[in-house]
Design a protein around this nucleic acid. Structure first.
Lengths: 213, 213, 213, 213
DNA sequence: GATGAATGAGGCTTCATTCAT
DNA sequence: CATGAATGAAGCCTCATTCAT
């Protein structure tokens, strides 16, 4: 019952079911590190500890692998955020602050930020990937922010602004941070604390830069 | 005056000047359209109307070609901006507004914005390109903005903020716009007027989002 | 009677008979539809409703599977035809006509025609398959026709022709029809009724094309 | 003027222009020997004495290479045959005999017969190739024969037959011979003289098999 | 200077076969 | 008996770079 064979069998079965997860983890790492075009499927397989061919047992091709990575790692975060917003009860500026900081914590401060960078960087060269990402991630994300803004306006908490425009403004600092994080030193000389940066931004967003008269 | 060094330098400079603008223009177009890794030197040569071999007469390799594009098209803009800032005499908030809008006009609203995107997107895969760009463009650009901010603080026009942090805040909307522009519709559903976006941003930067009490 | 050999043989025969007809049927379908090299064993197993591994329990490899298909589906037809010829009692031209039409009905108008096409098309790339097919099918088939022709000559019903040559002539229309059938429209624009074609051929074979004087 | 350099130069320039022909010759050899799917472009290049990449300087891909082979080697033969038929002045049975024998001599007895075999064998797996071949070769070839038959009927030299049907009958022996030739021993034990076979066929076609009463 | 033919390493994908369970 | 996960050799195609002319 405790012989080596059982151990081996156990390990194998566990791996069999874990394969897709291992591959997705490896793929996420490499897509984030190198981008879409530059990650070689050979390397993904090697990093997952399997051979090239094994990868094709679980994913049709590179594009399918990428989509699976997004579905596995990014969509759940979106789902949770949607719930949070729908159930929020406090002031809309707090909702936005929480949303931004949460977004940073759950995505920006994670490998996942690399996916955002990848899309911005390479979607032009891979239209199908771009389309998929837009439909599954971008449009859902934008709708969430716009809803929060409209809520603030409706409750008289915000000036009467154009939700679409301000959505892009709100989006920009987090995206910027994600980019910087993955530009590995090209765009910043000394390390900047993302939290400090975001608070600076939110501060400006709500109180402005001008000195009080 | 007639020593060998002068002869060599003279020949090199003549050569440098003779480098066909067509090649640099074609390279800029394609780097911007497809990114660094994805532009084929074949296509650059073809678009410039010369043969692939000719390209190698003027540029050692792809990297050298890219550096030449940056030197030819981006560095002059930086030089002019530096002069403007040093000579400015008005309120620092006007200086910043002018700087941002000018940056948009001279770079963001131009093919050149594609270079910024390219660097952010791909510098991780090409360390030498990253190093070059940082040294020649990023560090110079950051220094400019920091100087303007410190001027504002010194003249009592701005709250006493951390110049380094705010530099990044100021940089973000223009970089965002440049990214969006080159994400070919993936990141925005309806077209956004960059000028409107920038004014929204500057507005928030100086007056904040909160409704007046 | 009880020696190991018998046990092995017994087991082997039981195994052989147990070889699922589904696998052979699926293999026939796919070999006919796609050819030898292009049928994937994955697909054969899937179409038979078993796993790929199961296929290897019954057949050593692709070649063995193909041989089994031939043995299962083609050899019985040959056997029956041999009997028919040996027992025939009428005019040799009727024998030939019946033979040709029967051949069409039992093979040509069936999936089995695809095997003939496959052999002609690909035997060059698979010498062992070619050898097997020649020994088991071709040589037996040719012997049959030659015997019928020699019978006709011996009985004074045919001109004194070279049986080997005429064998090939007789063979050609049926083989042609089988080819056409599997060239999926490439070699014929309008659909041709095989029966009409064969009768045209037999007509010409016995009466010639020239107008009667 | 006669130095080694000149010799080398001469050789190189000659090769440059001869490349496509060398590649087409190698491709024809290998397509004929192995079929479409089984010929590796590496081997084509190697047989032409160049590297893999060179092949892609002249042909977009495998399909394009195959089409070029057909255009280069097969279409000219068709053109000549069309002229011959249009200008013929003798008896239609002589025209047909000449056509068949000429077809054998110019195509069947040549490597080109392998193309016919390839198409019959593999067109089902490569629809685009099939379409091309049908449009460029099959339909033109059939039209030719039908025209010759209709001429014979119009001049009272032939019985009043269905041209379409008989076209297929006439086509069959040559196609059969081409197949046999490329079935390398699978379908025939002793070598058969094609000329003897064709004459046997034409004989039967015009005089029938039955012994004179 | 200019050309463009040639190279060959490298990436994606397929599939017959093996083998632990 | 049956499974299906895993392998890895092999094939198509791309493209930065070289070099004879």
């Amino acid at each position: 019952m405790n012989c080596p064979i059982n151990k081996i069998k156990g390990r194998w079965e566990r791996r069999k079911e874990a394969r897709p997860q291992e591959l997705l983890a490896a793929a996420l790492d490499l897509f984030v590190e190198r981008g879409y075009a530059a990650t070689r499927l050979d390397d993904v397989a090697a990093q997952a500890g399997v051979s090239k061919g094994t990868l094709y047992l679980y994913f049709t091709n590179k594009e399918d692998l990428f989509k699976a990575v997004v579905r596995e790692h990014l969509l759940p975060v979106l789902g949770e955020a949607e719930q949070t917003i729908d159930q929020y009860e406090g002031h809309s500026s707090d909702l936005l602050r929480e949303f931004i900081l949460n977004w940073w914590e759950r995505v920006g401060d994670t490998k996942l930020s690399g996916i955002t960078k990848l899309i911005i960087a390479e979607s032009g060269n891979f239209p199908e990937v771009a389309q998929f990402y837009h439909d599954e991630v971008i449009s859902r994300g934008k709708a969430m922010i716009a809803r929060a803004l409209e809520r603030g306006v409706a409750r008289g908490e915000f000036r009467n602004i154009d939700a679409g425009q301000v959505t892009q403004v709100i989006v920009s600092p987090v995206i910027m941070l994600m980019m910087w994080k993955h530009s590995s030193g090209v765009c910043q000389t000394e390390p900047v604390s993302p939290i400090v940066f975001l608070n600076t931004f939110i501060d400006l967003l709500f109180h402005g830069l001008l000195a009080p008269k």
